[in-house]
Nucleic acid binder design. Structure first.
Lengths: 381, 381
DNA sequence: CTGAAAGCGCTTACAG
DNA sequence: CTGAAAGCGCTTACAG
């Protein structure tokens, strides 16, 4: 038994030890008024703090006997290492990589996650965390894997990925698994992989919300058009799910059903988009609502304005600089916000919690499906 | 000039010094690859780190000459103190107090801020922050000031206040000013005081959002009722503003105006509430929408169900356990969420940033006005 | 007015 | 397998 009688805050624990047994119940009685440190543990175990550190970090080179002894003490006293002191002492730098689509001329959506990354890094840089962001093009076949390889070459401690091109991201996740580099997804998910977490929206449910909003406003006797614009549907379940959710709402809804139509346009060209829409609306004049499954909704808004179709209720996704003016004017009734800033922010924080603080992180962090209209827009921007 | 040639990362800075002048431009050229510490500054100033510390913390006992010299260096090098090392070294404990209404039987709204407080403290307790929460009753005349006095007696380093009883909170804020204890408001605000910040919703705008939702669904030929239930209107601008915002929407809206009616019920008793509502609806049978200005909306939902008035569109505030079942059933169409968890969370974090990290904090932190309906409810709970 | 030293709780070589 | 020592960047008495 070490001589610890002179350490005031450990006297209670000492008493318990004298009785010959150190148990959780005893500790509850002990109630030390000071934080437990490795020094205390070393004292109680009769070893040096170096040995305690070895056990705590599983660094080996400790006899089984002392290992067990120390573990029993840390557990009983519910020892919590001081992260501040730890990062201060270890000059270790943790390097993250983020892989996401580049901002293309067609949509500024991917600007937002950049500020989320910045915010997260500002918050955790004290802990020696850095991040490097890598951009791929969703339009170029090999872009994702090329860029991902570059990230891998730097051997980061963790990778945050927006897997918009699902096939390629799947391949890459397997490589990360092999190389034992932890990764997390944001914005869209690929199920059943070893990602630390997914941060983003439940895409099916977001389609259901879109449908509810449409339903809430439209009368009973009308038809609705679901439009997908250049969304790489086959390689992007996220967008597919929105459409499915939208359709599901009307399928399961009791009462007057509405007739749904679907239109896929694989072009960014306003000419192409207009003529497709014009054709469809001519064939189905009873369409009173249009739901666009991604941030390209502004194309449809433009069309509605140029053709003066103000009777059509338009709903889509994302508070991009392209979409916002149409929401403000009322051409778009509602935009569903994916919280792109929070997505990347929480993704990095999750990596930090898991890798640096060794905390448990939920497998899915589902962010709210924000309903945004002209009147509450300013607080989401 | 101190001998610093042997300190690799300062060589560039040294070069600049040799030229006789230390200026921002020079520093940009210098680009040190290592973090600047008080040790570096001490070296450059030719003093001990103790003196540097005195200057940085304005502790006096330093000659004007060395003070200026050190300040010039810290500013030029853009010195950022290491908060981790600082809190580790100073065993100082920072104690916050939170003053807010107690959870009453009539509404569970005030449960939510408690988890916000818990979340914030968990995040900053490493920095030696603690918080003690004090509850007052909005129904008892002197409760707020009594409870606030108790908080004051502990001489906290900062106070977070939900000033639901405005007159009393105003008095108390003046006391805090006198005693130089910094304070912040959450949930509702009192303008023109010395609060560090206000975290909460823009209440006028939230009323406007309520009106928009009502408008979006109702046809052109109908009337709307605005109900306030036991809301201490005179002593609570927050609730008053919501009503004003709601009315304002219809006043400024071009096109078909809707007729609005107003009803104030100063009782929690369902009997009283039902008979008031029944009377009003009998007199104005064209009412198709009811907007309730606070979380007591569930009373009206109950009334609508018991009287089978499913044609009435009901909108109110807050995701309380009382309201949620009615939102799920569809009796309530929309609830406006105030983000009560984020309010107290951000309030404490703001106090922390201001008081501990000495950061600037915006005078108002306006949280989003969440539109919640059955379909996106699960992600806000 | 200023400096030297001890210490916060932990990590990291290094010596044995 | 284990311990002693130096150090992370800062703060806090204390001595002069």
């Amino acid at each position: 038994m070490p001589n610890i009688l002179n350490i005031a805050h450990l006297i209670n624990i000492y008493t318990v030890f004298v009785n010959g047994n150190l148990s959780k119940t005893s500790y509850v009685m002990a109630k030390p008024d000071k934080k437990i440190t490795i020094k205390d543990i070393a004292l109680l175990a009769g070893v040096s703090i170096g040995t305690v550190d070895r056990v705590i970090h599983n660094r080996g080179e400790v006899s089984e006997k002392t290992r067990v002894k120390i573990l029993r003490i840390t557990e009983t006293l519910n020892y919590q290492p001081d992260v501040l002191a730890s990062t201060l002492a270890s000059k270790k730098n943790v390097r993250f990589a983020t892989i996401m689509p580049k901002v293309d001329k067609e949509s500024s959506f991917w600007k937002a996650p950049l500020s989320g990354i910045e915010k997260a890094i500002k918050e955790i840089e004290h802990y020696g965390i850095t991040n490097k962001t890598y951009f791929f093009s969703v339009f170029e076949k090999n872009s994702f894997l090329e860029v991902a390889q570059k990230a891998l070459d730097e051997n980061p401690d963790g990778i945050l990925i927006a897997p918009s091109v699902q096939e390629e991201a799947l391949q890459f996740a397997n490589i990360c698994d092999e190389r034992k580099i932890p990764y997390a997804f944001f914005n869209s998910n690929i199920a059943e992989l070893n990602q630390i977490t997914y941060v983003g929206q439940d895409s099916i449910q977001s389609g259901i919300v879109g449908a509810k909003l449409m339903d809430y406003c439209l009368g009973t006797n009308c038809e609705i058009l679901v439009v997908s614009i250049y969304s790489f549907l086959k390689n992007n379940t996220h967008i597919q799910n929105r459409k499915q959710g939208f359709i599901k709402y009307y399928e399961t809804k009791s009462g007057a059903k509405k007739q749904l139509h679907s239109l896929e346009i694989n072009s960014f060209n306003d000419g192409d988009i207009y003529s497709e829409l014009r054709k469809t609306l001519k064939e189905k004049p009873n369409i009173k609502g249009i739901f666009v499954t991604n941030s390209r909704v502004f194309h449809v808004a433009r069309f509605i304005e140029s053709e003066k179709l103000s009777h059509i209720n338009l709903i889509g996704y994302d508070l991009t600089t392209e979409n916002i003016p149409y929401l403000e004017k009322g051409t778009i009734s509602f935009l569903i916000n994916q919280k792109p800033i929070e997505q990347s922010y929480s993704g990095l924080i999750a990596l930090f919690n898991k890798i640096v603080l060794k905390k448990d992180v939920p497998k899915e962090i589902l962010l709210p499906i924000d309903i945004v209209t002209r009147e509450n827009l300013m607080y989401y921007e």
